[in-house]
Design a protein around this nucleic acid. Structure first.
Lengths: 165, 165
DNA sequence: GCTTGACTGTTACGATATAACACATGATAT
DNA sequence: ATATCATGTGTTATATCGTAACAGTCAAGC
């Protein structure tokens, strides 16, 4: 059994080299684009960078403001299209609960995202979801339902905020 | 170990006596209201009935239209407040993915809802979620995260639509 | 009867998202 | 080389979803 789902789960909750994880994710995105013939155009790339730098979930309009400030279009579709592109290619994820988007920190790995959302500091971490998925699919299969996509989102307290009281 | 989570999961996907399951759920809601001192007022009760009769996820504005047609207020807060009441007391659930609400068919049972959403017929079923929750909490605990609330929503094909091709 | 608190209704607005169309650009076919 | 086409970017306009703030109602308890 290969290590398909490395434990990067606590990343958003722990101290780490921000610039480095951003650079790595961007590098992986570029590699994937080159490999799959995706067009990581300026807006799309910049949108991904914005999400990576923020390192948290951002609303579409928030991303749009940043893009507009840098000379890109200032109308909603500009942001929504870039974000949709990123999401549809696994470079970012949509957090349903927050109507927001987060960059994926390990797009190269196949993974079934499970999100842990801290209600205090708003950090969003991606936890290993293989087991949750397995349980979900088993339950669905039992009633004849075929799962195509799933979103698993938990709201609670991250270690830091939990310790802070 | 008592049977805390009976298999009502396939209910929305299978033929059954609609009127009867609606009446049962409504009866349970009333019992709960009486027991806990909740005020199941006319708007709230009617909103619940509307969701029960529809037996699918409905948007707040859709519920509002029905309420307004029956003489209740026609402004958004009317529907949102009734729905918030139902959700906060476990009589209905919010489906994040659809920005919509479904009546809970077994409010009396303690349960951790897992939703199966058919992309073809839009039916929404509540599946047993105990195992999924256990896996989710275990994964979260491993990184020091405390889960308070979670939403698990799967999009796919229900048995009927799956069979239909 | 008066106060109080919960509920319902309103107006007004904010936040999120998409449809539809114009234009640019680069690849492909002629 | 140029016509065609697909893809992407930008726009305007509008749809959809959700909430803040305040006025009126009404029943419970003093």
């Amino acid at each position: 059994m290969s290590r398909v789902e490395p434990d990067l789960s606590a990343l958003a909750f722990s101290r780490h080299d921000h610039d480095r994880c951003t650079a790595t994710a961007l590098h992986q995105a570029e590699a994937q684009a080159a490999r799959d013939g995706l067009r990581l155009t300026p807006v799309r790339r910049r949108a991904l960078e914005i999400l990576l730098e923020a390192h948290r979930a951002m609303g579409a309009y928030e991303v749009l403001d940043r893009l507009a400030a840098e000379g890109f279009g200032r109308q909603p579709p500009v942001a929504y299209r870039a974000l949709d592109f990123l999401v549809s290619h696994g470079l970012a994820h949509r957090i349903q609960r927050l109507n927001a988007y987060v960059a994926c920190l390990h797009p190269a790995e196949p993974h079934a995202p499970v999100f842990l959302i801290c209600r205090a500091c708003e950090a969003v971490a991606e936890a290993p979801g293989a087991r949750v998925r397995a349980a979900l699919e088993a339950g669905a299969a039992a009633v004849g339902f075929t799962v195509e996509r799933a979103s698993v989102e938990a709201v609670g307290l991250c270690p830091t905020c939990s310790a802070a009281g």
